[in-house]
């Protein structure tokens, strides 16, 4: 096999590969979480790792997010590199103190005495009929907290590359996986594969409208771009990949080219990362814009079990927002 060979791998197995490779590389890396041991994780992310690395490094926890997240923060400050799985992002609410008041602040608050190499992996998002308490996209909450980094891989390659970078990062990093992407297959470069945190990727070039998204919505954005290409509209699709920090440079460069911007997120539209991107563009390069910024996001209600179809924003709304941006003006 040549050096630049690629393999088709499922998103969940890309995560598994990242965990396995990093545990192999660095014995300070440990896994903590509910069912991560012999069961291999609720979604299978740690399947097989318990057999290879043993219970000392793949640690099943009681259902105690509050304490095992605090414990992971303490362990990270004292030399381990814990990778914590929070089974559903909704359960992050149970350990907010440990994440927000403790892990995020320990470095700065204590005068840079500590490094906090803590990774939190958590599947988020709707689309699996998991209901209001197992389907939320809460990434903006954490992007709002100084001291945390937040990444949202949209592809198997990024799931692997971003997780590996997160594990090597000396800061707390929240890796927001989309559980509807877990089964998705995609190419992963052979050998060591790292994706830098804070770097967006232009997935499709276009001259007419810049389309910024992250996570599962990236695929909806690509679908919308394909649809609009048939209408003669060129969409430039940017996958942010990281939302804290986010790649302003790539977004600004694209807006300077297209002069029109739409941001799509799965989370409720209000106060999401789309609002931050929109506000920053309006604040710093308003004169580049030829039309109002469009935002796509979920309606301001909890994720309804039986109404996900009506709830979830998709390519249709993105295409509509892009058309509006393309036709609009001040």
């Amino acid at each position: 096999m040549s050096d630049n060979a690629v393999k088709e791998v499922r998103y969940i197995w890309a995560i598994n590969q990242a965990l396995s490779e990093e545990m192999e590389r660095d014995e300070d890396v440990i896994l903590l979480g509910e069912d991560v041991g012999a069961p291999g994780g609720a979604f299978g992310a740690s399947r097989g790792l318990f057999e290879v690395f043993g219970p000392e490094r793949v640690m099943d926890t009681p259902i105690s997010e509050s304490a095992f997240m605090g414990l992971a923060a303490g362990a990270a400050a004292c030399g381990l590199r814990p990778v914590v799985e929070i089974m559903f992002m909704d359960f992050m609410t149970v350990c907010m103190d440990a994440v927000v008041n403790q892990a995020a602040k320990m470095r700065y608050m204590f005068g840079n005495q500590y490094t906090l190499p803590l990774v939190i992996r958590t599947p988020a998002g709707a689309g699996l009929a998991a209901g209001p308490q197992h389907s939320q996209s809460l990434e903006a909450w954490f992007a709002h907290v100084p001291g945390l980094k937040v990444v949202m891989p949209a592809t198997p390659a990024d799931a692997k590359g971003l997780l590996k970078s997160a594990i090597r990062d000396d800061n707390p990093v929240l890796v927001v996986e989309h559980k509807a992407l877990h089964a998705m297959k995609g190419p992963i470069p052979d050998g060591e594969h790292l994706v830098p945190i804070g770097q967006a990727q232009v997935l499709r070039e276009g001259d007419d409208v810049t389309l910024v998204s992250a996570g599962r919505m990236v695929h909806q954005a690509l679908k919308a771009a394909e649809e609009l290409a048939g209408e003669g509209l060129g969409l430039e699709v940017i996958d942010l990949r990281s939302i804290q920090p986010w790649d302003k440079e790539t977004v600004f460069a694209s807006v300077a080219k297209t002069h029109r911007l739409v941001i799509a997120q799965e989370a409720v539209k209000a106060f999401g990362f789309g609002a931050e991107v929109a506000a920053t563009v309006a604040e710093e390069i308003m004169d580049e814009l030829d039309a109002p910024i469009g935002r796509v996001g979920a309606p301001f209600v909890p994720v309804p079990f039986g109404l996900e179809g009506a709830y979830l924003p998709g390519s249709g709304q993105i295409a509509q927002a892009a058309r509006q941006a393309a036709e609009g003006g001040f």
Binding site: L71, A73, G74, A75, C78, L80
Partner: peptide, 12 residues
């Protein structure tokens, strides 16, 4: 909040 953090130090 310091209780689980100390437990983490103990784990390390």
């Amino acid at each position: 909040a310091g209780i689980p953090i100390a437990a983490g130090a103990a784990l390390a």
